[in-house]
């Protein structure tokens, strides 16, 4: 077994030996339900799709993903196990990927547990299941991007609270970057090209494109690159910490 797999399995197991994972799953499912049915007017819209469900995901992840990612490295640092882990024969990249994949799979599980909603929609009407599948894919990719940001920021501090707040902050900026209110605010103050660039950085824009069922390679690439860049930055921080 590769070291990455070993780390991933250890991490995944550690989620479920404490009640944290179950608490998280319950909160995730309850919030997802509430947001969909009340805020999203699931029934009142009279349409057989999961659009209101997915629309709420960025805001749901804003709170819940940092809660998963904050412990990834901060906890190891605080508990002294970082020294143990990093003196085992594995590279920083392998350790980072192992941790990331474990957390990403866990979020994938949380997402998969919302399947009853999908079944409900299919019972009530005949939705376009391709679009719904794309929505799930987009949602999982977005969760991965948030997670990668959190994994990187978790290396910066031994305090999980600080890691949580920093992650939530960056994520909210990335969500809001494409909102017209934000872009309008900078209209005139910044050159048009820069504003367009900022708009392209927006998570929301890429997520909504995928969730509409349009699988554009650029949107997928956006998420994959975001994930890789933040994970690489995290590895860099870990390496810098060895020399500091």
């Amino acid at each position: 077994m590769s070291p990455t797999m070993a780390v991933m399995r250890r991490e995944l197991r550690s989620y479920f030996v404490t009640p944290v994972a179950y608490v998280f799953l319950v909160i995730f499912l309850v919030l997802a339900g509430i947001l969909t049915f009340y805020t999203g007017d699931f029934y009142e819209r009279g349409q057989a799709d999961l659009q209101p469900f997915f629309t709420m995901h960025p805001w749901l992840y804003l709170i819940l993903v940092p809660a998963v990612s904050m412990r990834l490295w901060a906890e190891e640092e605080k508990g002294g196990t970082l020294e143990l882990l990093l003196t085992l024969p594995l590279t920083l990249r392998q350790a980072m990927l192992g941790k990331f994949f474990a957390a990403w799979l866990f979020l994938g599980l949380a997402l998969a547990l919302t399947a009853p909603l999908w079944i409900t929609v299919n019972y009530l009407g005949s939705p376009d299941n391709g679009v719904i599948l794309a929505g799930y894919l987009g949602s999982w990719l977005m969760a991965g991007a948030f997670l990668a940001i959190g994994a990187c920021l978790s290396t910066l501090t031994r305090s999980q609270v600080v890691a949580f707040i920093l992650t939530a902050l960056i994520c909210v900026l990335l969500i809001l970057a494409g909102q017209p209110q934000v872009l309008d605010f900078f209209q005139g103050a910044l050159p048009r090209k820069l504003i367009n660039g900022v708009a392209h950085l927006s998570m929301l824009r890429h997520f909504e494109a995928i969730a509409r069922g349009v699988l554009d390679a650029r949107d997928l690439l956006y998420f994959l690159l975001t994930i890789l860049a933040w994970l690489a930055a995290g590895v860099l921080v870990l390496d810098l910490k060895r020399t500091r």
Binding site: S14, G79, E83
Partner: peptide, 12 residues
Amino acid sequence: YLPEGAPSYGEM
């Protein structure tokens, strides 16, 4: 290597 204080993953 046994690090100082013998750290290990307590929940395992």
